[in-house]
Design a protein around this nucleic acid. Structure first.
Lengths: 220, 220
DNA sequence: GTCTATATGGGGATAGAC
DNA sequence: GTCTATCCCCATATAGAC
């Protein structure tokens, strides 16, 4: 891995890009806008990153790796001191989502931008970025899948994957479209309290994990 | 509402746009690509829709209205013949998701494209499209929220909104990123069987609805 | 109603001065 | 390392011929 050069302009460019990509999308954000917001000149991006595409990859990579690492570290920590007994389902889910949720809590606002960008990037179809992301997540996925299988010995491998996928859906949708929740609930619900949001998500998903899937029956 | 003119070119343009927007995204799709795929000429879009923006709105509106109407119709049907007794939670969730899921099942492929486009549009930030969508969904939302409150009298209004939001998350993520599920599960899980997928989603969300949210406790 | 040609603007990337 | 000027391509939208 290349050692990232610590350069104020470089950082400013990434911050600006993170914010603009997150609010306007990748294609709709011009390098002119990025450099202007960063207080740099037009050529700066191409000098520091050599292309617009590489800039996004850099922006994503900067946060993604530490984020996933913190998740697995948290899981490790929960596993330690249990003497081989499986970690409780709720704790596993907490380890899955807490790091990303805490990014939102920080007022630094950079994390919020990043998570929006992540959601957007996931949705953006056919992009060269997807392989990168999947690669980034595959290890974490396997790790958590194993923990979940241990915690819920009744589930098959495939059922566990399905429910992991559902849980990611709950999480991604919640953090990337908070405004939808706010509007549809007529401002009754807000993400303000991170800890409470995490509890809600964890409780919802945990129940889903424990409940076996039955064929849809007729009423009564 | 303007009566939509039935014109083969117009239809072909919408189909082409639906497919291309869904696979490449809105901004990355040029009118050149759309008209080429539709077998029309470059000017056609501006003649029939007057702008690229209006084209997307037309493409979304074409499917969104009937889709939501079918959902509420299904709920109506479930409510009928229950003599005032609340509809069972599972049936409500089924009514919420079945219409969209059935779009995928059809081999006509247009529905799949549309759903991808929907997810993409939801993610696309700051777009003029968002108000339109929210407006489209607000009525359906209110309708289902009422049904859910009746089915689960123990929940507060706001808890019900939260869990609806989570459920949409499960659904949207599942249908818009099937490849993520496939890859992360090493091809163990596929969306092939619509009915089974619906069952899984409904079971997962129903459990989440029934489970109360508790503060995260220490292990054991 | 359909097509072609074109107007007009904006984009990413580059080369070369400082 | 930073900035400016510029190249060249591609986009949307329009005007006007058929």
């Amino acid at each position: 891995m290349k050692t990232p050069v610590i350069n104020p302009t470089r950082i400013a460019l990434m911050d600006a890009a993170e914010r603009l990509f997150a609010t306007r999308g990748f294609k709709s954000t011009s390098l002119r806008a990025v450099t202007a917001l960063a207080g740099a000149n037009l050529g700066a991006v191409n000098y520091h990153f050599s292309s617009k595409d590489s800039l996004v990859i850099a922006v994503l990579g900067r946060r993604l790796k530490p984020l996933n690492e913190r998740g697995t570290a948290l899981l490790d920590q929960f596993e330690k001191g249990r003497g081989g007994k499986p970690v409780k389902l709720e704790k596993i889910l907490e380890a899955m989502f807490r790091p990303a949720l805490e990014l939102i809590a920080k007022p630094s606002q950079g994390g919020r931008n990043f998570l929006r960008l992540m959601a957007f990037t996931l949705a953006e179809p056919g992009k060269f970025l997807k392989p990168l992301l999947e690669e980034q997540f595959n290890e974490k996925n396997r790790r958590f899948h194993r923990a979940l299988m241990l915690a819920l010995p009744g589930l098959t491998e495939s059922e566990t994957y399905w429910k992991m996928h559902f849980s990611y859906g709950v999480f991604v949708h919640t953090i990337s479209h908070p405004h939808i929740l706010e509007i549809s609930s007529h401002s009754l619900c807000k993400l303000a309290d991170t800890e409470r949001t995490l509890e809600r998500i964890v409780a919802f998903c945990a129940a889903g994990f424990r409940n076996p899937t039955h064929p849809l029956k007729k009423q009564e």
